[in-house]
Nucleic acid binder design. Sequence first.
DNA 1: TATGAATGAGATTTCATTCAT
DNA 2: TATGAATGAAATCTCATTCAT
Lengths: 190, 190, 190, 190
Amino acid sequence: MTKPNKWQSILSSANDVFLNCGYEKTKMDDIAVGAGVGKGTIYQYVDSKEELFVQMIKTNVSYVSDVLMEAIEESHSIEAFFDRLLHKTLFMLNKHGEKISFVIYEDLSRISNQLQEWMAENQEKDMQRLSTMLQHFMDQNDIRDVQPEVAAWLIQDVLRLGIYFQVFRKQDNIEELMRGEIDILLKGLK
Amino acid sequence: MTKPNKWQSILSSANDVFLNCGYEKTKMDDIAVGAGVGKGTIYQYVDSKEELFVQMIKTNVSYVSDVLMEAIEESHSIEAFFDRLLHKTLFMLNKHGEKISFVIYEDLSRISNQLQEWMAENQEKDMQRLSTMLQHFMDQNDIRDVQPEVAAWLIQDVLRLGIYFQVFRKQDNIEELMRGEIDILLKGLK
Amino acid sequence: MTKPNKWQSILSSANDVFLNCGYEKTKMDDIAVGAGVGKGTIYQYVDSKEELFVQMIKTNVSYVSDVLMEAIEESHSIEAFFDRLLHKTLFMLNKHGEKISFVIYEDLSRISNQLQEWMAENQEKDMQRLSTMLQHFMDQNDIRDVQPEVAAWLIQDVLRLGIYFQVFRKQDNIEELMRGEIDILLKGLK
Amino acid sequence: MTKPNKWQSILSSANDVFLNCGYEKTKMDDIAVGAGVGKGTIYQYVDSKEELFVQMIKTNVSYVSDVLMEAIEESHSIEAFFDRLLHKTLFMLNKHGEKISFVIYEDLSRISNQLQEWMAENQEKDMQRLSTMLQHFMDQNDIRDVQPEVAAWLIQDVLRLGIYFQVFRKQDNIEELMRGEIDILLKGLK
DNA sequence: TATGAATGAGATTTCATTCAT
DNA sequence: TATGAATGAAATCTCATTCAT
């Protein structure tokens, strides 16, 4: 087995075990067994359990950011944006499944300060890009004037809802639920 | 010191330490010191660290449920409901502050299966009550026909937003943001 | 078993095991077993293996310093001094046996910088006191003019010789050898 | 790079690293890097870390023995012997510097029993040769009757003093100190 | 012959829980 | 009832050695 394959095995195993057991309950032994390598091998690639966790989270976070960014780039109206967001989210949930839940439902500040800062910066960037897009739509009268910060938060909530009902509630009508949320966000409850 | 006072001290200390350090990093020693009692004394009231954690979470969860329930009970229109939700949430955030964040941003299933089930039931009850209320408003044509599950999720998002921007982002325009979200939920982005 | 007894057991066991195995080869498990306590108990008294080692060495070093100091205090001539040094050294070798060898024949700088500094200061103090005494004897024409530093070194060599031939060579004519060395130091080889 | 050069690089690197870090703290990795060879290459020349250490020590020990032996061979009086000892020791200290301190100030028995035996034999041979020389001087009335064992120990102490004050105390008046010690050994303190 | 990625036994240290006082 | 000293299972990480290339 060549070098990149080992690292991929380790990262993939780390993903599974950290996700199922949480950071503290995860044992390096389990990750090693899951990856089919010796315990010491992991330490050829990272210096500590914490660093391995950070590597894993960074990979997964980028999946979520990518969905948002790709949806923004190609969209010229809010409807088109939501449409792409919907499809890309469903695709990502299908592909990366549960991996994402860690990113959304865990307070990572207690695991690594460095990671928390990185996450905050990342989140800030996503917020900025969403806000820019929303401001653009407001200038074009595509949507009415609202606080971009709040609108951005609600757009991210479409992702949150998808993850929550798929990963934690195990429901299978995710698309329907997301369409329902988008509908309310566009037209309101009244 | 009489018995009830000791238990209150322990619970209060547990609150502080679990919140600051997370479940795994919290040491029984620290809780004992914070409560001003001997380590062994804690085991007069609970059988394990896990049980102490469960006791603490249950207390805090009820704050959140209470806000929702009180807002439901007194409201005869969606606007009145949101209005009460806003005020009660702000009051709770002020009073119980960060305690709530644990309930929202920690995956409790890894700490205790029993707790997770309890949380799921609780959440289900909240959802049911919100759905019933929303169905009532739909029957009265106070709001248009939407999926109650999704609407309930979005209503809870008003709480989520408040907690996130207060506890994690330390912003001080929480009321404004919540009003903005409620406005979007009522009238939509268009 | 009361608290001071446990600590004495631990210190005594540490003495034995560190002496027989050396710092690195010594396992905390062995010390615990030797002391008849649990491994964790050791960490109630010291924070680390290194600190335990430092505590042990400091105790033993003081035995050696004490021999020198007591011999100095009571002596008014070089012969009287050597006489007392001889007897006190033999007594100490009898009582504390091999414990002392560590102090003389190990480069402690690699185990703990803090300890090395402490040892250097200690050594400096011993040297100072010996030099003062020797200067006094020189002023009184009890001995001829020599470099106090060298004479102090040679006096300490009486201790070194005793430890070497007893601990490492296991000879039993230690007193005779020490008397021989003192004789040469006083009268010279010629 | 040809074979003998590799072995010389390894031995030289082992010297540096063992000396600076001590046996246990020395890593085979560091020696390999220092020698500019792969880690596995070292195992072409020795079977284990211990064997590499033994090889290194044996080389260094011979420097010390050589000084004694060369001083013995050419000397026909105790003064001539000490004179040569002085010059050869200073030369050796200059050339091999700190390497020797390991031989004097480390308890090698804990690293390798085989090595300790070898050292003891070596030491015994040195002692024998010194004793023979001293006996010869006593027969010729060049020096008075003393225990040869003790006199031999004190002669070796001239080397010890040189190493101690140069390597550990970093003093630069080594020659003066050694002359002072030789003077006391010859004429005594009285 | 030369390499260095891979290995896993074994080290130190932590901390929830117990129990003698 | 209240205590905290004592415990030991279990965690992370190291590094001498091997072996496929």
